[in-house]
């Protein structure tokens, strides 16, 4: 019993450590003062600052537009890629493809960033929103593929064969049987790609030009100049959004699981 208590309090300590910085940020976003120490009374002044800071709000909007569009396109290409790999019978060929697929997943983000920078420079591609978008799509594709491919492999083929025997066209089979079956994994891949994009700093840092910035890059340059509690207000809002996203993801996956179990 005593040992259990010891173990649980250890875990609790780790949890507290994990959450201290986040809680600290959120608490100080309500500080009336200007730095992350002392306490100048409870106030919403930094939230007002935040909502008056059009530059930061535009960057926030850009970050979300970037994340949603890159995740959508990556979900499409990743799924198409998974359908292609699913059709490969030769195990050796498949494994070769898979190891190339995983290169961007295991590579340090700095090397991805600089190699894309070299690529864009050699192609004469100007750095800005499009180069960042293309890079985010590029590093999200393998994630989507790894989510979708196992689901395709597990899929029961009898339905597809029955449909084919009954004369269904390939497009019909795809849209009526295959896509609905793998939809939860496509969504999971999309959400994962979304978080990768929102969280990315290193790749964006290298491939963005002067005109375009994402939240991570902006915080990096502001943090180098010192603390501003506006950033705290922003992180409190971001934390709320993350909570909402996690909750949605959790509900969605449990719902998808339940549905899958019921239909089986």
């Amino acid at each position: 019993m005593q040992k259990k208590l010891l173990g649980n309090s250890y875990l609790l300590l780790v949890m507290i450590l994990l959450y201290i910085p986040i809680i600290f940020l959120v608490v100080y976003s309500f500080n009336g003062g200007t730095i992350m120490s002392g306490w100048g009374g409870f106030s919403f002044v930094h939230y007002q600052e935040l909502f008056a800071d059009t530059r930061l709000l535009k960057i926030l909007l850009d970050t979300f537009i970037l994340a949603i569009s890159s995740a959508t396109i990556a979900a499409f290409i990743g799924t198409v890629g998974a359908l292609f790999l699913d059709g490969i019978q030769n195990k050796k060929t498949l494994n070769t493809f898979l190891s190339f697929n995983n290169v961007l997943l295991v590579s340090p983000d700095v090397t991805i960033g600089v190699s894309f920078l070299i690529l864009f420079t050699i192609l004469g591609f100007s750095l800005g929103f499009v180069s960042v978008l293309v890079s985010h799509i590029a590093f999200s594709i393998p994630i989507v593929l790894l989510m979708v491919l196992p689901r395709l492999r597990e899929m029961d083929n009898t339905l597809v064969m029955a449909a084919r025997d009954l004369g269904a066209k390939r497009g019909t089979i795809l849209s009526q049987i295959v896509i609905p079956e793998i939809w939860p994994s496509i969504m999971a891949g999309f959400l994962l790609a979304l978080t990768y994009s929102l969280d990315d700093f290193a790749v964006t840092f290298f491939v963005t030009g002067n005109g375009f910035s994402t939240l991570s890059v902006e915080i990096y340059s502001r943090a180098r100049q010192g603390v501003s509690l506006e950033i705290n207000a922003l992180s409190a809002l971001m934390f709320a959004v993350s909570l909402l996203l996690v909750f949605t993801y959790y509900l969605y996956t449990t719902y998808a699981d339940k549905k899958a179990r019921l239909t089986k």
Binding site: P21, F24, I35, L215, S216, I219, V227
Partner: peptide, 19 residues
């Protein structure tokens, strides 16, 4: 959950905590 929060924001928190 904490991994869903932007790495830069978490790093930024330490600028305040450790200052």
């Amino acid at each position: 959950l904490p991994t869903w929060i932007n790495v830069l924001l978490k790093t930024y928190a330490f600028l305040g905590l450790l200052s």
